[in-house]
């Protein structure tokens, strides 16, 4: 799937800690443009924490995170805004604004960051909702949508400004297998056609096999990346037994 090898995210010597507790210890990796990049690992290994560092919500204890060559950790003011315009985020809880209808939720970034006229904004919102399969639900409040629909709505909002990178935190969780597969197709199509780079935190192995160009695996015992590669390769050829077991869903006492 990956056609370009240009790097869009550099994570350099990143250490993440909550006070004195180190969660991730000195890791480095790169994400290439147009790639569907998956962060995988057991529960509590710091996957979502890593994602939140990458989108600049928290500052790391040490290290740098470069988005398209700019350090999101140290950037401030307009520079930070420029970096944030390049990314879109779908949170695990969807984080839709409860007081706004679905339409307004998706329209908000367009109102704030573009000079499109009102009718144009309406059209773009409807197109995004069509892309995620939610056309017809414009007037629904987030509380009136199912968990899966809320996730799709959050993806629509995250990509309404057509960012270069979309960060998705557990996108398939709570979706039925068909909707989940449709979402996978959507991700593949967006990565293909719009050259959007995806950074996804997920546990869903079927999704990973169908969408991921590359996977990194975090292990909370060593607090480091223990595997990096294509999911099929990691399952069949990894040197690390735990990694192979993880992919094959084998239960042993070693699996945390």
């Amino acid at each position: 799937m990956n056609t370009e090898s240009e790097t869009i995210i550099h994570v350099e010597s990143l250490t993440v800690a909550y006070e004195d507790t180190v969660v991730i210890d000195n890791i480095s990796f790169e994400v290439r443009k147009g790639e569907v990049f998956v962060i995988l690992g057991g529960s509590g290994c710091g996957k979502s924490t890593l994602l939140k560092q990458m989108i600049g919500l928290y500052s790391p204890a040490a290290g740098r995170i470069l988005i398209d060559g700019q350090d999101i950790v140290s950037a401030e003011g307009d520079e930070r805004l420029r970096i944030l315009r390049k990314i879109g985020v779908m949170y695990q809880s969807s984080a839709l604004f409860g007081s706004m209808a679905l339409f307004e939720n998706v329209r908000l970034p367009l109102e704030e960051f573009t000079n499109l006229n009102s009718a144009a904004m309406d059209l773009i919102v409807l197109m995004k909702l069509k892309l995620v399969g939610l056309k017809g639900f414009e007037n629904h409040m987030p509380s009136e949508l199912s968990g899966g629909m809320q996730k799709r709505a959050a993806i629509a909002r995250a990509m309404v400004l057509d960012p270069q990178i979309l960060f998705l935190d557990e996108p398939s969780a709570g979706l039925d297998p068909i909707t989940s597969a449709e979402l996978d197709q959507l991700i593949i199509s967006l990565a293909h056609n719009l050259k959007i780079t995806f950074v996804i935190v997920t546990h869903e192995l079927p999704s990973i096999y169908s969408i991921a160009d590359r996977v990194i695996m975090l292990d909370k015992r060593v607090k480091k990346i223990v595997a990096d590669g294509r999911p099929q390769d990691l399952r069949d050829k990894s040197d690390n037994q735990w990694v192979r077991q993880f992919f094959k869903r084998e239960v042993t006492s070693n699996v945390s």
């Binding site: 059209l123 409807l126 056609n193």
Partner: peptide, 15 residues
């Protein structure tokens, strides 16, 4: 491909 995904007549009314 992306353009073909949308049927323009689906978006008759703005909202």
């Amino acid at each position: 491909k992306l353009l073909d995904f949308f049927d323009p007549l689906e978006f008759e009314e703005s909202r």
